[in-house]
Design a protein around this nucleic acid. Sequence first.
DNA 1: TAGATTGTTAATCGATTAACAATC
DNA 2: TAGATTGTTAATCGATTAACAATC
Lengths: 215, 215
Amino acid sequence: MARLPVYLRALNALADAGTATCSSEHLASVAGVNSAKLRKDLSHLGSYGTRGVGYDVEYLRYQIAREIGVTQDWPVVIVGIGNLGQALASFSGFRSRGFRVVALLDADPDRHDQVVAGVEVRPFDDLEGVVRDQGVAIGVIATPAVAAQDVADRMVGCGITSILNFAPAVLAVPEGVDVRKVDLSIELQILAYHQQRKAGVDATTPVPTRKVGSA
Amino acid sequence: MARLPVYLRALNALADAGTATCSSEHLASVAGVNSAKLRKDLSHLGSYGTRGVGYDVEYLRYQIAREIGVTQDWPVVIVGIGNLGQALASFSGFRSRGFRVVALLDADPDRHDQVVAGVEVRPFDDLEGVVRDQGVAIGVIATPAVAAQDVADRMVGCGITSILNFAPAVLAVPEGVDVRKVDLSIELQILAYHQQRKAGVDATTPVPTRKVGSA
DNA sequence: TAGATTGTTAATCGATTAACAATC
DNA sequence: TAGATTGTTAATCGATTAACAATC
């Protein structure tokens, strides 16, 4: 369930604020969801609340972390150490949320031996060795679009079955491999779409002539 | 409709490949969706296809770009020019997809006068002036979580009504303001969740004692 | 017991998709 | 005309949410 990480973050916030117990209503408002939906989601995990009382923040937090699988650290490899790759490698949030960046790989020799966030940048061809030695199951692609499919193929080839793709390209992967995509342009375009509707903009640029049916 | 940008990207790919006409089946496979869904989505925009023939790639591309609102450039301001902010500022995809980064703002004086991707980093207090002068409607937040709400408040205060938030924080904004959130940790956690299920991992770490009901 | 809140049921809503009549 | 493919209908599916019985 894609909302579990959101609940986990909300529970972390409550725990940081020193809250020991919370109702579904309270947690739902922190997480920004409907309380009935929250209760239904949680009921899929088991019966971790107490009727008339609510949820123990620490206990529920652990149960959700266990359900997601972030009670242990997941080794992660990042491929493509350009601006975005470097930013990802430097992102401290990964470490505290159950992930450990074990290798940074890049096809460009000029980037090798560079150190980003304390990790050395290595040749892309080290992929298979790193994945084997470190037991990597999750790969992050931060390369240009043209390279993304090749990187994905190599990742799949050496046993990675979960890929987070930042390259603006649709990846073809075999059954059983999960790909999640973060596409910055698409996020902005969705905002632009809504923004245009708010502003009541009407486009007055010339329309290209229709070609189907003619010629 | 959140899928329009995906179709637009698919159409761009087809146009680059020199395809002049495509069927809903073809376009759907490039975009990675069901063809019936694609036709239904497109039918909301109008009747831009030709029965028995298909869609004119260039014509449909323009129509979708117009619908989204990216036939003109949208001025965008990025706040928080750390690693991620710099990566976003340097991302060439924005320019080609209808967005123009008009200002980079950061509260840290040490970052001022630094130039990232040809744009000078300016004080955060320049926000109101930039938004007014450049007609900015879309703001990007790439600050640490603690600063995000303040930045959002200031943005809303000077008329920005679309926000793309990279900070791992839930933003409270007034009705009418759109916030989209990109959360790197949550994306990875969703992958971890599925990965755990594939691997059949059973967590054997000790469970904290339940506190509700006792004490 | 009385009040509070969960876990679950059932109703509602919207999204997906198969199928096909319209039509190029 | 015959083949192809759209635009749309109607059926299916799943997700959301209000309501409430269970129960602490």
